[in-house]
């Protein structure tokens, strides 16, 4: 019976054009909608798989505005058992503050009798990309941590994890409880079913609120990188362009090396 806690962040869906809010403190997502990082979708999938393989539980947590309930419901719809929404003004939170807020929940649940053997996060958030909440959380909880993991299984009281390293796939084994950050690629996140969506509506959600941030993000402002005007040269249309393409590749020195 493994209890997994998986942390997701509600972020603007940035597939299209990006706009900033007038105060330059965040991405204006009113017209694009919200999502979570693909890394976190994989973390949710792993949490659900581990919970079902061990007859355990998968709790999904988000620190954010009350609207983050949307991302929590999506995770409930693909098999998480319950959710925690920690309300906070995340724009004023830095990674250390988010880690502290998550650690508070883990500690509070432990004192109520639920120990999270495994806490899963994404490797990096899709918006702020700080690459550190998981590590900071692990230190706050005094647990070992792995980052950039694509696959994790639980065998008894140990986690077996795999991830891409500079020399190939790296295998790790570590004792539980532990913290693991997940990178896309090891599992395919499932789609919610209709019964899943129905169940998600009734699943228990605990609402909490975080205290004020003690560290903050250090953000001065956001800005957009300078956009380059298009200077594309069209070599042609269809297969007739092949000679022009090969001429270009030859000039660039990449033919017949």
């Amino acid at each position: 019976m493994v209890n997994v806690l998986v942390c997701v962040k509600r972020v603007p869906d940035s597939s299209g054009e990006i706009l900033l809010t007038a105060d330059e403190q965040s991405v204006d997502a009113r017209h694009v909608g919200y999502t979570v990082s693909p890394h976190e979708e994989c973390a949710v999938e792993l949490a659900v798989q581990i919970a079902s393989a061990t007859d355990g539980t998968a709790t999904v947590l988000s620190v954010g505005s009350e609207d983050a309930i949307e991302q929590l419901r999506n995770a409930l719809a693909v098999g998480c058992s319950d959710a925690v929404l920690v309300e906070a003004e995340t724009d004023r939170f830095g990674p250390a503050d988010v880690a502290a807020a998550i650690a508070d929940v883990v500690t509070a649940r432990a004192s109520e009798g639920t120990v999270y053997d495994l806490v899963l996060l994404g490797n990096d958030a899709a918006d702020t990309g700080d690459f550190q909440v998981g590590v900071r959380l692990a230190y706050a909880l005094g647990r070992p941590v792995l980052t950039g993991i694509s696959m994790v299984e639980v065998q008894g009281d140990r986690a077996i994890a795999r991830g891409d390293g500079p020399e190939g796939t790296e295998i790790f084994e570590l004792p539980l409880p532990a913290v693991v950050t997940v990178m896309e690629g090891g599992v395919a996140p499932r789609y919610p079913s209709i019964p899943g969506r129905m169940k998600a509506k009734k699943a228990p959600v605990e609402n909490k609120s975080a205290g004020p941030p003690t560290v903050g993000p250090g953000r001065v402002r956001l800005k957009l990188p300078p956009s380059q005007p298009s200077s594309v040269e069209i070599l042609g249309e269809g297969p007739d362009a092949a000679p022009a393409v090969v001429d270009l590749l030859t000039r660039l020195g990449v033919v017949g090396r």
Binding site: S14, I18, V27, A126, D127, G129, R219, V220, R221, K223
Partner: peptide
């Protein structure tokens, strides 16, 4: 000390203070 770093996968940048 203020640095500019990539956020949103490089679609935006953040000026961040490191005190």
């Amino acid at each position: 000390l203020v640095v500019t770093r990539q956020v949103v996968g490089g679609a935006a940048q953040e000026e961040m203070r490191l005190d």
